[in-house]
């Protein structure tokens, strides 16, 4: 078999519609996993705010465990090993496996971003809100979150792009995104060069403009939310005097 051969445009044209179609699956998976991570990240964040020491330690340990284990191992575990676990084990389809696996994996990072956003709000803001007699719910919705969220948007955007690039991992459990489609095409016709190049190109075309967008967003946020506005006390704390 001839291993070295010319670039073949007809293969490109042949493979393009298949890869293009699979792109929607990759994008759909990205959005599903990301949405799951955003919501689940919030769950981590709030559980960790409950002031019960053993619970906090347990949650930190679980999150650390999830973060330090490769997502591919987690996907394999959920797909192949989870169904064999007694009592709680269930068989999951590839799509659910991927959303759960990557969603939970990334939720630990997202939770960290939420936490940094919430902690960046000055303690004096909580105190002023208490002094004005807001309810706990109103403190969050009117005072804290409107200040905590905007600065985290660029970081959240970065994680969306990172997640998009991690979606090909789901090919390992059989989700037919761009990578798996290109792989199958290659296996069928012994033409790997063109379909894989197309996949790379699609990733580039989608993530590069997105990262520029995130950068712009970041600059905009920095301008709008420069760190010197009036309410802050520059991190100084007063407890007793």
């Amino acid at each position: 078999m001839n291993m070295i051969r010319e670039w073949d445009w007809s293969t490109v044209i042949d493979a393009f519609p298949l890869i293009f179609k699979a792109m929607w699956i990759t994008l759909g998976m990205t959005i599903a996993c990301y949405a799951f991570a955003l919501v689940f990240g919030l769950v981590w964040t709030f559980i960790r705010r409950v002031r019960i020491k053993p619970l906090q330690r347990l949650i930190s340990f679980i999150m650390e465990f999830i973060r330090t284990t490769p997502p591919l191992v987690q996907l394999y575990f959920i797909y192949y090993a989870w169904p064999l676990v007694p009592y709680v084990g269930v068989t999951l389809d590839p799509i659910t496996t991927s959303i759960l696996g990557l969603g939970i994996h990334f939720s630990t990072y997202i939770s960290e971003i939420y936490r940094s956003g919430i902690e960046s709000v000055d303690k004096g803001q909580w105190e002023a809100a208490t002094a004005l007699n807001f309810s706990t719910r109103q403190k969050w919705t009117k005072i804290i979150l409107p200040q905590a969220i905007p600065p985290t948007i660029p970081m959240l955007g970065n994680y969306l792009i990172i997640m998009f690039k991690e979606i090909p991992l789901t090919a390992a459990v059989g989700v037919g995104g761009m990578l798996l489609t290109a792989q199958k095409y290659g296996a069928k016709f012994y033409e790997y060069m063109e379909p894989l190049t197309l996949v790379a190109l699609f990733f580039l075309l989608l993530s590069y403009p997105s990262s520029i967008l995130v950068q712009k967003l970041e600059q905009k946020m920095n301008r709008r939310f420069d760190k010197k506005p009036g309410g802050s006390n520059n991190g100084k704390e007063v407890t007793a005097s």
């Binding site: 000055d122 004096g124 803001q125 105190e127 002023a128 002094a131 004005l132 007699n133 807001f134 309810s135 109103q138 009117k142 005072i143 409107p146 200040q147 506005p229 009036g230 309410g231 802050s232 006390n233 520059n234 100084k236 007063v238």
Partner: peptide, 25 residues
């Protein structure tokens, strides 16, 4: 209470700073 470091709400205008509590509380 009035605080040493003011603790105004930086994401609200002056007027909104003074109306957000009467309206919501």
């Amino acid at each position: 209470m009035v605080f040493q470091h003011f603790n105004l709400f930086p994401h609200m205008t002056i007027l909104k700073n003074c109306t957000v509590a009467p309206i919501n509380v």
